[in-house]
Write a protein that binds this DNA or RNA. Structure first.
Length: 589
RNA sequence: GCGCCGGUAGCUCAGUGGAUAGAGCAUCGGAUUUCUAAUCCGACGGUCGGGGGUUCGAGUCCCCCCCGGCGUGCCA
């Protein structure tokens, strides 16, 4: 790729000019100046600001004095019109049309690439997300990992990284021993035709009975031993569970538009466990304790890491080591993200430490991206609790998605007269209904616990996915009505409204928000940015409804051309942001 | 006990060391001959859990405490 084709935004010339002048006027490194240069809280105060406190301690003089002296020495030019001190702050007033035209042209040129960068070129990021256990329905509580993981995938991809999305299917472990034992005990379900619902019922039924009769636990353990031993009957059953489950999972992933580059499940790593266990014993890392095999981690203030249970079977921890090594061998990752609930924070610290002790210098690239728990308000007690699949309390994800789609369908029916030709109501209902669910999940910082709430999840008004989609649809509508090409050559001088300037400032910020979202592994930063941008646009748009002069498609040709360029840039940015979240951007609604 | 995460308006949340702490929901009042009212405008609403500290400046960083959640060797 030639440099000129890199999807990277060019530096803002106005900001560059301020930085250049500051670099010669102030005894600070360019880097620290860049870190200090900020945007004032209100546009009346100025367009950029340098707080002079850091300089004050450097120069041992009062900050207000420095600010006013700097302001006095500033030479206006075509990019920066004025510098003024306001107490300890040095405010800059820029050539707004110049910066506006820079930003708008940039967005127009880059289009779907606006915000992207190539800083990750040549680096692989492995992202482990969703990773549900088989033989159970996907529940709402499975949503977060899948959505956060998919969004991080898109975010890193936008920064030029090559991403590998892995669904580390939970297809191995004692719970499948339980299920096999249940099949054999009850014998009333046909393995060939068993649905996920039936598997789940069997599991719950067996668990309940096992609470009364502890000997069933032993039966389950033995069944898992047979499975790990490769016994044909047990293996055959297990293969059935898996095929049925994956079919159902994929149906739901399709609704969400989620996909994976690899489905390598836990069982994929079984063949590697013996070698790993041997190696760890030989190196003295692992040792027998209470009949189990563990890696003691007392020296690091961590509980021991268990590799093999007293009953000789392995656990997830064993397979996770194999998986990490395998992923390193195969992908040589720059970063390996595990998008898994925050409750496993300690476990991932152990895993990372063990990998490090094994001599893998890449252990530092392994990172747990945790997120808060999904909780449910108990209808009777009013108390919060986590859902337990074991007791059969779970809200199926598919049901939530379908409810969203159904609610959107109703709303569309009410507004059918508004819907211009060319829109497919069914497709739109899916886009909006599922968009609402996805956005509501991703708009909250991932560390927060969330309480499941039908109404909030399926809300279409206020700070929601449909709100953003609606703004986008309105933008598309303006573009359609304009019936003309957006001209990147349009003169931006007519964009004099404060609302227009506010939009430009927001657009300019998008690339850095994208970077910050990647650094913080935080898709909510994109969601909240979009809400801010849409709020600003909606206010602008509504002003146009009240006053014809403020409309985009106004009488004055030059103003109209400039506004179209602005509006087109807003539309591109909203669409790009929604794509990062995995939310559809319908053109009519 | 120890560890991790959270505590900001009645509710749900933004705010990643800077000027007067912001949204949405709810409540109340307005806006639709107009580029889509899934919208907009206004009002009401705050000891940023408490206390110390660092700093020119703390919701933001550090320490202690309180509350809630989660985790803390044979599940994943």
């Amino acid at each position: 790729m030639r440099a000129s084709e890199d999807p990277v935004s060019e530096a803002n010339p106005v900001r560059e000019e301020i930085l250049r002048w500051l670099a010669e006027s102030v005894p600070l490194e360019r880097q620290s100046i860049e870190a200090l240069l900020d945007v004032p809280p209100s546009a009346q105060m100025g367009d950029y600001v340098l707080p002079c406190f850091a300089l004050a301690s450097e120069l041992k003089r009062p900050p207000a004095e420095i600010a006013s002296e700097l302001a006095g020495g500033f030479v206006p030019n075509d990019r920066v019109l004025r510098a003024a001190a306001a107490g300890p702050y040095l405010n800059f007033f820029v050539n707004r049309p110049l910066m506006t035209s820079h930003v708008l042209r940039q967005v127009h040129e880059l289009g779907a690439d606006y915000g992207k960068a190539d800083s990750g070129a040549g680096k692989n990021v492995v992202i482990d997300y969703s990773s549900p256990n088989i033989a159970k329905h996907l529940g709402v509580h499975h949503l977060r990992s899948a959505l956060i993981g998919r969004s991080l995938y898109r975010i890193f991809e936008a920064l030029g990284y090559n991403c590998v999305g892995i669904n580390h299917l939970g297809d191995w472990g004692t719970s499948f021993g339980k299920l096999i034992a249940a099949f054999e005990r009850y014998g009333d379900v046909e393995a060939e035709s068993a649905t996920v619902s039936q598997l789940q019922e069997l599991y719950v039924r067996f668990s309940r009975e096992a609470d009364q009769r502890p000997e069933l636990q032993d039966q389950a353990r033995r069944a898992f031993q047979r499975l790990e031993g490769g016994e044909a009957g047990a293996t055959e059953l297990w293969k059935r569970f898996k095929a049925t489950s994956v079919t159902e999972f994929e149906r739901i992933y399709r609704m969400l538009g989620i996909s994976f580059d690899s489905y390598a499940p836990e069982s994929f790593y079984l063949e590697m466990t013996d070698e790993v266990l041997r190696r760890m014993k030989q190196s003295g890392l692992a040792r027998e304790s209470e009949d189990a095999l563990i890696v003691p981690l007392d020296d690091y203030g961590l509980p021991p890491y268990m590799l093999r249970k007293a009953d000789e079977t392995t656990l997830y921890a064993t397979r996770d080591i194999c998986a990490a090594e395998y992923r390193w061998r195969k992908y040589r990752f720059h970063l390996a993200l595990y998008v898994v609930g925050g409750e496993q924070e300690l476990y991932f610290r152990q895993l990372k430490k063990v990998l490090e002790l094994m001599g893998h210098q890449w252990a530092e690239r392994v990172e747990h991206v945790g997120f808060g728990l999904l909780k449910f308000r108990d209808a009777e007690t009013g108390l919060l609790r986590t859902g337990s699949t074991r007791q059969g309390e779970m809200i199926p994800l598919e049901e939530v998605l379908r409810s969203g789609v159904e609610k959107a369908r109703q709303k569309i029916r009410e507004n059918l007269d508004k819907l211009e030709g060319g829109a497919d109501p069914d497709e739109l209902a899916a886009q909006v209904g599922i968009g609402a669910v996805v956005f509501s999940d991703l708009s909250v910082k991932r560390a927060k616990d969330v309480v499941f709430d039908w109404d909030r999840m399926l809300d279409f008004e206020g700070d929601t996915g449909p709100y953003v989609q609606y703004a986008h649809a309105r933008l598309c509508s303006i573009m359609r009505k304009a019936g003309e090409e957006v001209s990147p050559e349009a003169d931006c001088e007519p964009l004099q409204l404060p609302e227009e300037w506010a939009l430009v400032r927001l657009l300019e910020r998008f690339p850095s928000r994208l970077r910050a979202a990647a650094e913080g592994r935080e898709p909510s930063m994109i969601a909240n940015y979009l809400l801010e941008l849409c709020a600003q646009f909606s206010a602008y748009y509504s002003a146009g409804m009240r006053e014809a002069q403020r409309r985009v498609l106004c009488g004055d040709e030059a103003t109209r051309a400039a506004r179209l360029l602005l509006v087109s840039a807003v539309r591109h940015t909203i669409r790009n942001g929604l794509a990062l979240l995995g939310v559809a951007a319908p053109e009519r609604m």
